[in-house]
Design a protein around this nucleic acid. Structure first.
Lengths: 334, 334
DNA sequence: TTGAAAGCGCTAACAG
DNA sequence: CTGTTAGCGCTTTCAA
């Protein structure tokens, strides 16, 4: 717990010189530098980051606010962000909003109080208030969900196109009556729904309101929505869900109804998970480049920290379609 | 970004008085208190936590160092810790060691540099060095894995007994040749192995070295170990794995070999996950009280922060056996 | 090239 | 009950 003062005394120099050595300032005589370095080593000195932060009015901590850490997508993101952040000497504070705007706003304040350098955020629903907050504080990068009209750095998936390709794959395999269970209150769910509808139209099909459900992006909601769809007088031949939690719920419903995949109903979704390839049949899905998303977001954030006035950018990454058994070509039996 | 000085000026008092109001000190005249409160509100003043930390030589941040955030067990733990920490006004820094002692020691230093109040840690392998570190810094609570002989607060599962019950359940259902795939380099894997062996002995069976594998607690290792076990001249009738990652790998191997569960081979494990009840048949397992573990660990930590000299305690929680299809009573066919 | 000194925002001892 | 003051550990003018 030696302080810079003790190092200075041990090396017979002023604290300013120690500070200069620490900062790798070129204006220090080599001899002095050596002495200081030696003292640092002998005293096992480590700079007090708190003091440094107070002085600099800025920490080397960044925040990550996700909407649901139980969602493997966000777990993967946090891995990536953590990796990249620590590589750059930053620590990571992680928070979880449970899709609750109130919690989001609380955590945004926590971040402000913690004097973080910046925040990576998957905004929950109406982040208008939050956004205003953002503008008066730290650097921000938005991930996963876009905030329309906001002048903020973003890293997003090409949601419309991914959903289009996923739906087209079903269509190509002979499925026609395709239902979609979409996460509500986020641009992501809406965009994926758009891609789904575009694909249907491209195949001359009319999207049916009955087959599109917007629900909270969680297992229970996916389960309930799927159950209701499967109980329709004319049930869908395929189910598309917009995240892995919804897919898990849908799968549960399919099991409960005693249906077989894909013979009775196909299932496709977004996001690779441990289980998607473990269930029988394995699930066809759009894999997001999670690591790259997290890494890119961190890079954008630290760039903005370094240069607050640079133009904002919006990075769109492509999803990858992984075709597996849950959407095998349809065997017509009607 | 108003500071305490500006509040003091606005209220026509000294910064000390503002500080006292902030600390809820009783020695402030109500009239003054009112004025200060008003100024605080008007200026939207929020205390600078950095300055406070520098002064107090201690932050209101705690660290969580887990060995693998991809392990849903640790994801659940981090949820719980985060919840409890924020309830008490603490922030959470999360790190991930990937079971790498080097990363662990780096992150322990990060924690020290960040002046955290304390750290919750699932120690990786030989944390002797780490432990010494610990003793000279912040409060520590160890979770999931015990450090023998260490005088540290711990929150653990009753591993031996849980594994005993899990194994006994298999034995009661008619399985005899039971293999175990255990996480290596942690007391957890070893203790669970002990419970497994005790159960075998209680049933008059001799544990066979051939059927016990210690491997890195990850999917790939679980896959490889299971594959080798299933290729044995006399393959096991049941597989027990000591965490969900190993189970996922084992399941993959079972699928690849085209075996049916439980007819060809049963599978039981530790840790509830999304997928364990989603695969067919669902997996029998010991569920850990993850939320309680995280909550208890946080409580112990904050208690120790408040009272560093209190006697250390070791909290042992019970696992819950969830019986599902993957270990259904054995149909003898020999 | 180096050092003295001020000050980041806060709290707590001490005086009054 | 309230204000003055010193100082937490660091960086950065400003002078020398």
């Amino acid at each position: 717990m030696a302080s810079i003062k003790e190092v200075a005394r041990a090396a017979g120099v002023s604290t300013a010189t120690v500070s200069r050595v620490l900062a790798n300032s070129p204006h220090v005589r080599p001899a002095l530098r050596e002495r200081v370095l030696k003292a640092i080593k002998e005293l096992e000195y480590r700079p007090n980051l708190i003091a440094r932060s107070l002085r600099a009015q800025q920490t080397t901590t960044i925040g990550l606010i996700v909407s649901d850490i139980r969602n493997p997508f966000f777990t993967a993101i946090s891995r990536a962000v953590e990796d990249s952040a620590y590589e750059e000497g930053y620590s990571l504070i992680v928070c979880n909003t449970d899709e609750d705007p109130k919690k989001e706003s609380i955590y945004l304040n926590v971040m402000r109080d913690a004097n973080v350098a910046g925040v990576i955020l998957s905004p929950t629903g109406p982040t208008a208030a939050g956004l205003r907050e953002l503008e008066t504080g730290f650097a921000v990068v938005v991930i996963d969900r876009s905030i329309p009209d906001a002048d903020v750095d973003m890293v997003l998936l090409d949601n419309v196109d991914s959903a289009y390709r996923l739906t087209r794959h079903l269509l190509e395999n002979g499925y026609r009556r395709i239902a979609a269970i979409c996460g509500e209150r986020s641009t992501t769910g809406r965009e994926r729904c758009t891609g789904y509808e575009q694909a249907l139209r491209a195949y001359g099909l009319l999207p049916s309101a009955e087959l599109v459900r917007f629900v909270p992006p969680q297992i229970e909601a996916g389960y309930a929505a799927a159950l209701r769809l499967l109980e329709l007088p004319e049930p869908p031949e395929a189910l598309l869900t917009t995240n892995s939690l919804l897919a898990a719920g849908a799968l549960e419903a399919i099991h409960e109804r005693g249906l077989r995949i894909p013979d009775d109903v196909a299932l496709v979704t977004f996001d690779e998970t441990t289980w998607a390839s473990l269930v029988q049949p394995p699930i066809t899905l759009i894999e997001q480049p999670t690591y790259e998303i997290g890494k890119t977001a961190t890079e954008l954030l630290l760039q903005r920290v370094a240069e607050p006035e640079r133009a904002t950018r919006r990075v769109i990454l492509k999803g990858r379609l992984l075709v597996r058994g849950s959407s095998a070509p349809r065997v017509h039996c009607g």
